[in-house]
Design a protein around this nucleic acid. Structure first.
Lengths: 216, 216
DNA sequence: GCATTGCAAAGTGCATACAGATTGATCGAA
DNA sequence: TTCGATCAATCTGTATGCACTTTGCAATGC
C-alpha cells in the first residue's frame, strides 16, 4: 500500500472491484465503520470513497442511511445494453473513418491472433483478448468523451457479462462477429462497421439476460 | 437552507453553478478552508463536495494540492460536442420509433409554441424552451442510461453554449432545425430524425467554437 | 549575482469526537 | 394477543485537531 495520498483512490478501486466481480451483491449494505475497520482507516476517507462510488453509479446513498450496492433493474440493465450497442456502433463507425494505418493493422493482428484461443476453447484468455479488441475500437474512434462514456458503461455492465463466454459456441460466434467488424474497418466502411458492432453487442445482451436481477 | 443531511448536495449544486455560469473560471483554485468559511461549514463536507465535483469532471484534484476548475481543452471540447451530436441523434432516432402519441403531440405543441419567441427575439425565453424541447427528445427515447449520458454531457457543455443564442439569426435557424426534427418524429422516420438532430448540434458546435478556452 | 538549502506559512489527508437520526426491541396498555 | 410508545444501540453527519506535504521566501555559500 502506497503510503501517501491515494488511500481513498485505492479504496474506490478495491470496493468497485468487489462490486464488479460480484463479491458484493446488489442490495448489500456498505456501512462505514465496517469498511473503515476492513481497510484499517478512519471513517473520513471511507465516506469520501463512498461518495465517489455513488457518483459512479455503483452504490446508492440516502441521507442517514447506509450505502447499498445498486440493484440494477431489468429495465435499466436493458437500457444500458442498448446504450452500449449504440456506443460500440459509434466507435466502430468512427474507427472505420479515423483509425491510422498502424491502428488498423494492430486491430487485425489482435483479431487474427485470437483464432487459436477459439480453437483451444481458452475462455479466460479469449476474454482478455476480447477486452483488448474492444478497447482498440474505443481508442480508434479518436474521441475522448465517447471513450469515457463507453468505458464507464462497459464497467457497469461487467458483472452481468462475466459468464457470457461460458455459453457453448459463444467463442466462435464472437470471433466471427469480430471478423465482420474488422473487415468493415479495413475497408473504411463506416456504416457496415457500425451495424456489425451494434449487432455484436445486441447478441451479448440476449445471452446475458438470464443473469439480470429481477426488477424491484 | 434545509437543516439536515443534504448540506453536501447543496454545496455541490452551488459550486457547480458557479463553474457553469463562469463565476469560477477554469484554472481557479478551490481551497477547502475558504469554501468552508464561505458556506459556513467545516472542511469535512467541503472535501466530500469537492470529491463529487471531481467525479463529475468539473474540477481536477491531485494529492496534496488544491482542487482547480478543469480547463477543458479545445480537443476535448470538440469531442464532447461530437459525442453530443451522436447522443442527440440516438435520442431522435429512438424517439421517432418509441414516443407515445401524447409525447409526440406535446413535442409538436412545444415546438409550435416557440415560434412567437422567435419573432419576438426573446432569447432568454427561447433558451428555456430549447432546454425543454431537447429534454423531451431525451425522455422520448425511453432509455434511462442514454438519458443519463446525454444529460451529463449537456451539463458539461452548458458553459460553452450560453451565449449561442445571442448570435444574429440563431433563433430562427434553431427553430427551423427543430422543425425538421419534429416533422421526422411525427412521421416516425428514425433515420431522418437522427440526421436532423445530428446536424442541429453540429451547427451549435461551430457557433460556440469561439467561446472555447485555448488548449494547454 | 546566482543557485541552493533551510525554514515558515498555508493547505491537504486523515483520525477522533460528538451530535442527530434511525431502527429494533421491550414493556405496557387496550 | 396485538398495537403502540419509549428507550437503547447503532450508524450517519459534521466539527475539530494533528501530522505531513507543498511552496514561497530568505539567507547563506559559491
Amino acid at each position: 500500500m502506497i503510503r501517501t495520498g491515494t488511500t481513498v483512490e485505492q479504496m474506490v478501486r478495491a470496493i468497485a472491484d468487489m462490486i464488479v466481480t460480484g463479491e458484493l451483491l446488489p442490495g448489500a449494505k456498505l456501512d462505514e465503520v465496517s469498511l473503515a475497520a476492513r481497510f484499517d482507516v478512519s471513517r473520513t476517507p471511507v465516506r469520501e470513497a463512498l461518495r465517489e462510488l455513488g457518483a459512479m453509479g455503483l452504490i446508492a446513498r440516502e441521507p442517514n442511511r447506509s450505502a447499498v450496492v445498486t440493484n440494477v433493474t431489468e429495465a435499466y440493465l436493458h437500457s444500458m445494453f442498448e446504450a452500449m450497442a449504440e456506443l460500440e456502433a459509434i466507435c466502430a463507425r468512427l474507427s472505420a473513418e479515423r483509425m491510422t494505418v498502424d491502428e488498423r493493422r494492430a486491430l487485425e493482428l489482435e483479431h487474427r491472433g485470437s483464432v487459436r484461443l477459439v480453437h483451444a476453447g481458452a475462455e479466460e484468455e479469449y476474454s482478455a483478448h476480447n477486452t483488448e479488441f474492444h478497447t482498440r475500437l474505443y481508442r480508434g474512434a479518436h474521441n475522448d468523451h465517447v471513450f469515457e462514456m463507453v468505458t464507464q458503461t462497459r464497467a457497469r455492465l461487467a458483472p452481468f457479462r462475466r459468464a457470457q463466454f461460458r455459453l457453448p459456441g459463444r467463442l466462435a460466434k464472437s470471433y466471427e462477429e469480430h471478423g465482420r467488424i474488422v473487415t468493415a474497418i479495413m475497408r473504411a466502411d463506416a456504416a457496415a462497421a457500425g451495424q456489425a458492432a451494434y449487432s455484436h453487442v445486441e447478441i451479448v445482451s440476449d445471452a446475458s439476460a438470464v443473469f439480470a436481477t429481477p426488477g424491484e
